[in-house]
Design a protein around this nucleic acid. Structure first.
Length: 234
DNA sequence: AATAAGAACAACCGCGAGCTT
DNA sequence: CAAGCTCGCGGTTGTTCTTAT
């Protein structure tokens, strides 16, 4: 505990069940607002900020608690992040029952995993079985796109076998060659600069370009488009 | 079974936008 | 108009849980 500017003690750290109850009662009476009055009225020794966070992330009745992100939710996060960047609150609005904190935690966890796998594997990449028959779709993000303005992910897509994805990457100079890493249900291309793009093994999947910051990525994406054009179904 | 490493989750902090006085 | 306050967002850190060795 420490003192606030008013001299009153402020409690920090994990919330107790009794505190949750007080907070829930406050919201029942007043709605999810007036957070700072919770402390000023002496209901809880917590800052308004802390109360709001607790409500939004843990106590809201519409939250999906205790269940992991589905493959579809993960795909949506990756697609939206590629389009709008780290706007976690905005991304969360497309995922009912999920909070910006959930999305943010998922993303940083995924990023760490890929970084670690990339570090361990480089320069070799994951072998893909030629027998794997999953079809993949390429999704080229339109420039300055937003989820609202993106009419359909189905346009500008072509089909390719996972093994063929590696063939696209293979001709690149060794220095530029990204790793293709299998992470849960996705295949991600990663190089030293981070995640280049991802595609999904399940469903009719989409290859999402996640980096827009380098000419190399542009070249790679164009190579892919050219390649996919040449192999796509007529 | 014990321990270390990694993953997942929870909560705090700083900052900026917007509202009120 | 400006100063102060509240709220919301994104980054970060700390803690707990799970998995691998």
């Amino acid at each position: 505990m420490k003192r606030g500017s008013d001299g009153e003690y402020i409690r920090k750290g994990p919330w107790r069940a009794e505190e949750d109850e007080v907070l829930i009662n406050h919201v029942k009476k007043n709605g999810p607002r007036d957070w700072s009055s919770i402390r000023s009225k002496g209901l809880l020794p917590r800052t308004g900020k802390s109360c709001r966070l607790r409500w939004v992330n843990k106590l809201r009745p519409d939250l999906k608690t205790g269940c992991k992100f589905s493959a579809e939710e993960e795909r949506l996060i990756i697609e939206l992040q590629a389009q709008v960047g780290n706007k976690w609150a905005k991304i969360a609005t497309y995922l009912p029952g999920r909070t910006d904190n959930d999305v943010k935690n998922f993303w940083s966890s995924r990023k760490k995993k890929l970084q670690r796998l990339n570090h361990h594997r480089r320069p070799s990449s994951v072998p893909l079985k030629k027998s794997h028959k999953t079809k993949l779709k390429l999704h080229q993000l339109p420039k300055d796109s937003s989820p609202e303005s993106s009419p359909s992910y189905q346009s500008n897509c072509s089909h390719v076998e996972p093994e063929e994805l590696r063939m696209v990457v293979a001709p690149l100079p060794e220095m530029m060659k990204p790793n293709v890493i299998k992470l849960d249900s996705e295949l991600s291309m990663v190089d030293d600069g981070g995640i280049i793009g991802s595609c999904f093994i399940n469903d009719p999947s989409v290859l999402i370009r996640e980096s827009k910051s380098s000419n190399f990525f542009d070249d790679l994406t164009q190579d892919m488009l050219d390649y996919f054009d040449s192999v796509s179904d007529p």
